[in-house]
Amino acid sequence: MPDSRFKVLTSASTSGPGDAGRTGSWRVERPIIDYSRCTPAKTGKASCHLCWLYCPDNVVSKTLEPKIDLEYCKGCGICAEECPVKAIEMVSEEQFVKGGEDE
């Protein structure tokens, strides 16, 4: 054990949403889940949840309809890549921007 005079500051943290700041602002593509294909949503059973398991920012909920916390989701697309039934689509953030030049 370290000597008590030493604080030994390191970057060690419990992994969780916001662990690396408000990373939602980094996102250029947003994951959209199609619950008609999503295994736990379709079967009503707590199963699969690979999106929850693989999310590096811990922002996918382990619920029958998995929800993604867009405040912290940085749009990496790992959930879409891992989803075995291709229920997650990465959609350009431009689609969600309101108040474009034409409006």
Binding site: A12, S13, T14, S15, D19, A20, G21
Partner: peptide, 13 residues
Amino acid sequence: PESLNTVTLPDAR
């Protein structure tokens, strides 16, 4: 489980 030495922000938080 812990995350060790991941991206650490300029400011304390």
